[in-house]
């Protein structure tokens, strides 16, 4: 990143916080619904210092990774099936789109009824949040393998199963990466929905806990954490990874 860009972005943040502080100082709203930036900062500091936020984050990431792992696994299997078999796709493909369009929070009551107020319920919601978008992307990935590459492979005696592993899978990597990135984004949203309504532990649960105790400073602090994690993972991990893959695969 260019230095000037970094400076601009930091300056922007400073201005936003400045305006925030100004409004706070004018006493337009009650302190309980409009805390100052410093109160929020100290709430965050306390949360981390006491270890509460760390354990909440740890629990959230545990839910996220187990859920995302399963979502990628199921989504890939489903996507390969639909991508390879026209029959399967014609029969079930459109339902996948329907399932994908269901907001994750809708699954929460279902999950709670099956798994109770447990961490398993949260993981279940995360899995459902990521699986369908992953499946849709893997399906596109398999379908978009250039027929020309398949023909070329055939002339070199690579067909059937070995063609699947040596050509179709590697050729699918760019779409697969986009799939993982989207699955992560959807799972992250699903995770928060699930945790908000759970009995903890987790970042979403901490958020609701703060709400129950009318701690607006904590509420805002946790929202900031959620936003920062989402942006950091997307921008630093996935964007870079995806860009490198796209370049290598000649898609860009």
């Amino acid at each position: 990143m260019k230095l000037s860009l970094l400076v601009k972005r930091i300056a922007f943040l400073v201005v936003v916080i400045g305006i925030w502080y100004l409004i706070y100082a004018m006493n337009v709203f009650e302190d309980i619904i409009f805390p100052s930036p410093t109160t929020v900062a100290s709430a965050l500091y306390e949360g981390f210092a006491s270890g509460d936020l760390f354990s909440a984050l740890g629990a959230s990431f545990r839910h996220l990774f187990s859920g995302l792992f399963l979502a990628i696994l199921f989504g890939t299997l489903l996507g390969v099936l639909l991508g390879k078999s026209r029959e399967a796709d014609e029969t079930a493909g459109m339902y996948l789109v329907a399932l994908q369009s269901i907001p994750s929070i809708v699954w929460v009551p279902l999950a709670i009824m099956i798994f109770g107020f447990s961490e398993a319920a949260v993981v279940f919601v995360v899995v459902l949040g990521g699986t369908f978008v992953m499946a849709l992307n893997v399906r596109s990935a398999i379908r978009s393998v250039s027929p020309q590459l398949l023909r070329a492979a055939k002339t070199m005696g690579v067909g059937g199963v070995s063609q699947f592993f040596r050509v179709e899978i590697p050729a699918s990597v760019p779409y697969f990466m986009s799939g993982i990135r989207l699955a992560w984004a959807f799972s992250w949203r699903a995770l928060m929905a699930g945790e908000l309504l759970s009995n903890g532990p987790g970042l979403g649960y901490s958020l609701r806990y703060a709400q129950d105790y009318a701690r607006m400073d904590q509420v805002i602090g946790i929202i900031i954490i959620i936003g920062v994690i989402g942006a950091v993972v997307d921008q630093i991990v996935f964007s870079k990874l995806e860009k490198n893959v796209m370049k290598r695969w000649g898609v860009l």
Binding site: Q148, L149, A152, P170, V173, W249
Partner: peptide
């Protein structure tokens, strides 16, 4: 050999 090189980019 095809008109498009058809090489494997990975």
């Amino acid at each position: 050999v095809f008109q498009q090189p058809s090489l494997f980019p990975w």
